[in-house]
Design a protein around this nucleic acid. Structure first.
Lengths: 158, 158
DNA sequence: CAAAATTAATTTGCGTGCAATTTAATTTTG
DNA sequence: CAAAATTAAATTGCACGCAAATTAATTTTG
């Protein structure tokens, strides 16, 4: 007899395998990236999410916490303590916006700007570690962007 | 004068943009999946990593903590407390292997096995949320598996 | 076979992530 | 213009995820 699940959803048992899950492939790749970045970032006392904040600030300096959160998809509950650590490490400065005291403006220090030079080296090492051609990278990246967009669209429907 | 980084690595400034990073695309997709799964798993009192453990056990019941860790790429520092919570929730049982008391064997309870039926529904909802065809899913998944493999190979070289 | 080395889990400490609450400032509106 | 609503950060609580230290059991080896 065919299993109840198969009858209901017309999905075979193998569809539930770890190796078949796109979500698990993404989850594993994210961890693999983290592990690859770790030794490269450790030298600067940075974690990967802290490095992402710096990437955002190198692109556009002096953003509010909210704006950084929109760039990275993180909320203030994550960013507030993270930014304090980045400030303690000497890479950013935080100050209340005089025009709107609710907002905190985060900007790069001289040390934070200087680090951008090193980032190109990190970028090159990561590129080598992926073993992907530039075309492969952009194709995979764009496919993931589309996926993220579609998943996000679903979450707003509530 | 041309910047040191540009001379060394021949990488333009745009290469350092958030949107250009494959790692950030993976990072964002992982979070998007998490957010999509959350409401589906909340009904069963499960977190996403806990769900991954169940996926592994539905595929192959009664594994040691170490074996589960190999399947998921997690260490015992993560799994020990997670498995205790899964046990408290009534989905798994943990017992020392009588043949080797160092090992702990994790197996599904009746409740854990029953949950597998619901998993097919979750799977279908996630599939719909991704908006990907089966071909797209397997292509993207395999590309990510290759990427993870190459990144992991690098980490072992030390 | 007893000491040393190895192995499997657990525990501890720290840094995310996120939901929910709190605090303070600004905007809306009655 | 003052009360109510909204907004931005910070804080709190909980669950990963990982490194490092600890504990207990097994294996190796001298």
């Amino acid at each position: 007899m065919i299993s109840k699940a198969a009858k209901l959803d017309a999905l075979p048992d193998e569809a539930l395998t770890l190796g078949q899950q796109l979500c698990f492939a993404v989850y594993s790749a994210a961890h693999a990236f983290n592990r690859t970045y770790k030794p490269l970032l450790d030298r600067f006392g940075l974690t990967y999410p802290q490095y992402l904040v710096l990437l955002a600030l190198w692109q556009q300096d002096s953003m509010t916490v909210k704006r950084i959160g929109e760039e990275l998809g993180l909320d203030s509950g994550t960013l507030s303590p993270l930014l304090k650590r980045l400030e303690a490490a000497g890479y950013v400065r935080r100050m209340r916006d005089p025009a709107d005291e609710r907002q905190v403006i985060v900007s790069l220090t001289e040390g934070g700007r200087r680090l951008k030079t090193e980032a190109f080296t990190i970028l090159a090492e990561i590129g080598k570690a992926t073993g992907c051609s530039l075309e492969e990278v952009s194709e995979l990246r764009d496919a993931l962007h589309r996926l993220t967009q579609r998943l996000g669209a679903n979450n707003l429907e509530n």
